[in-house]
Amino acid sequence: MDGLLLLEQVLNGFQLGLLLFLLAAGLTLVFGIMDMVNLAHGSLYMMGAYFCATFTGWTGSFLVGALLTIPAVFLLGVIVEMIALRNLYARDHLDQVLATFGLILFFNETTRLIWGPIGLSIPLPEFLSSTVEIIPGAPYPVFRLAIILMGLLVAGLLYFIVARTRLGMLIRAGASNREMIGALGINIRLLFTLVFGLGAALAGLAGLMAGPILSVEIGMGEGILILTLVVIVIGGIGSIKGAFIAAIVVGLIDTVGRSFLPEILKLVLSDDSASTAAPAISSMLIYLLMALVLAIRPQGLFPPKGVGK
């Protein structure tokens, strides 16, 4: 039985890890090439979930809703970038943190105004809400598998874009020297806007996939934002590869730790104190991991080339 539970939890861990990766990829790209901290990234995730719930309600189909959501969040990201964030690139990080904190307040309240304080749910179509036996005797929800597949697909696509296309080349060049690619005649403003939109779309995708399993509610982006920050700090800010590896590790440790830590603690503590201490300790695990990584490598595991010295 324990083996099956472990398998299930490992899959859940992957699924959380891939969701985190979608968020972390956008955040780390935005940071890498624009040197910009965007706390409102979690709000875009939340908007993804709300848009998808609304579009699914209108069209009656989750898939159509999802397909409409991604360009909508992309557009929202572009608008936010053009109105508010563009003016902040030249500012210091404190200003960016504060302004994007203001954006979070704005998004949360606007959402409450439009959709009301009660959370929404996203109904899944039949074929996604069933379960499938991954190995005999171990049913697993199809939708969670779909998240894993989607996450891997996007990771592959992102790798292709960043490593093989002209846009990716500009992104990488921008990450190592912003002024230089501007001087070479590249329209950085447009590049920034595009990258921000791309990051927003990825956050929206994460939101619409998380919506059906978690609940769609105000503030849903904030908890996961902190996890995402932990991921990009561990992975090295600006590095897609670092974000991917750190996201999977954080997802696994968090999920598997939460379900097995009580058992492990019972080996050394009494049953009572183990079950009291376990929730507190398991939620601390990833922060301990982060502290450990930073104590050894202050720049994260995989800082991008040319950064960190």
């Binding site: 902190i226 932990v230 507190a280 601390m284 994260g300």
Partner: peptide, 27 residues
């Protein structure tokens, strides 16, 4: 040991760790 954005995020994460600890202690 870290600078800039790393510092912002780490201090935030440590504080969240204490926050979750407080949430976790049912007593």
């Amino acid at each position: 040991r870290t600078r800039g954005v790393y510092f912002i995020m780490i201090t935030m994460a440590f504080a969240q760790m204490l926050y979750f600890t407080a949430v976790g202690i049912e007593t």
